[in-house]
């Protein structure tokens, strides 16, 4: 294949990675931005989303779209419910102390991972895509489903942006993010807002996993890579910044897709990690973040 088509293919793969990564990282960024909690278990919510998607899809017979749609709706809700419970039972009791919550979410990571291993097993299992169609480009055919993943991710991010900027719930979240104590002094039930944000963050990771699982496979260890990449994205973009998360996800997703295809996936990860180091040295608040008060 000539360079041009090869580059186009790499770019398309990079865009799919970026779309899924943006959704996953947005969840992590929201949780840190509003709650100041570094959620080390975020990747496991992603994994749980994929594993539940496989389980839900396997419950129904008939056209694969039915199982996929069921998974797309129910799996993020179940994961959000797990996150909500974890927040109420664990994080709120730790008073959101930064060090304690890191340790607690590490514990949560292992609990979710080992539960998945126990009940789901060590196998990697596929979920069938809702439709199997290829778009014939002059140089190669490309999965229409993969392109639809980009579209769905854009729609979901748009919905999240509308939630944050155009709704009463979003206003409460942004006020809590801005100043927790003053939010309390104006009647905002900060604990409930935190629980909602934690559930929303986990739900976003789960929906990203459901979208990608037809092109990959559900596996109990699949949460580690998204966690690392999400941290890379939110550090580069700026913790708590929606715009920064999107730009950094595009940057990392595209470079990951292109470098992986032309050179190697290892080199892509090395360069992304180097970029994080440079950002931490020269602009610790990230490209679009503001210095913490």
């Amino acid at each position: 294949m000539a360079f041009g088509p090869y580059f186009l293919l790499a770019t398309l793969e990079g865009l799919v990675t970026a779309a899924v990564l943006a959704l996953t990282a947005l969840g992590l960024s929201l949780v840190f931005g509003v709650m100041r909690v570094v959620n080390v278990a975020h990747g496991e919510f992603y994994m749980l989303g994929a594993v539940l998607a496989w389980w839900l899809a396997s419950l129904v017979s008939g056209h694969p779209a039915i199982g996929f749609l069921l998974a797309l709706i129910v799996s993020p809700l179940l994961v959000a419910a797990v996150a909500f419970l974890a927040e109420r039972l664990v994080l709120s009791r730790l008073k959101y102390e930064p060090e304690a919550t890191i340790v607690a979410t590490i514990g949560l990571l292992y609990i979710i991972q080992q539960l998945a291993l126990t009940f789901y097993g060590p196998e990697a299992r596929p979920v069938r895509a809702p439709f199997d169609m290829r778009i014939a480009l002059p140089w190669f055919g490309y999965s229409a489903y993969k392109l639809s993943v980009i579209g769905m991710a854009v729609l979901l991010m748009l919905a999240t942006w509308i939630l944050l900027t155009r709704t009463k719930i979003g206003l409460l979240m942004r006020a809590t993010q801005s100043d927790r104590e003053t939010a309390l002094a104006f009647g905002i039930p900060v604990g409930r807002v935190y629980a909602g944000v934690f559930a929303l963050g986990a739900g976003l990771a789960a929906v990203a996993a459901v979208l990608i699982v037809p092109t990959q496979q559900a596996h109990y260890l699949m949460g580690l890579d998204p966690l690392l990449l999400s941290f890379i994205v939110v550090i580069i973009g700026g913790l708590g910044s929606l715009r920064g998360t999107l730009v950094a996800a595009l940057l990392i997703g595209l470079s990951d897709g292109i470098i992986s295809m032309f050179f190697s996936p290892t080199l892509a990860k090395m360069l992304a990690t180097l970029l994080v180091a440079l950002v931490l040295v020269f602009r610790p608040q990230g490209l679009f973040g503001t210095a913490m008060r």
Binding site: L171, R174, A175, Q177, S178, D179, E181, T182, A183
Partner: peptide, 9 residues
Amino acid sequence: QGRRLFTDL
């Protein structure tokens, strides 16, 4: 004290 506005809003 110090106003404590929601400065991003």
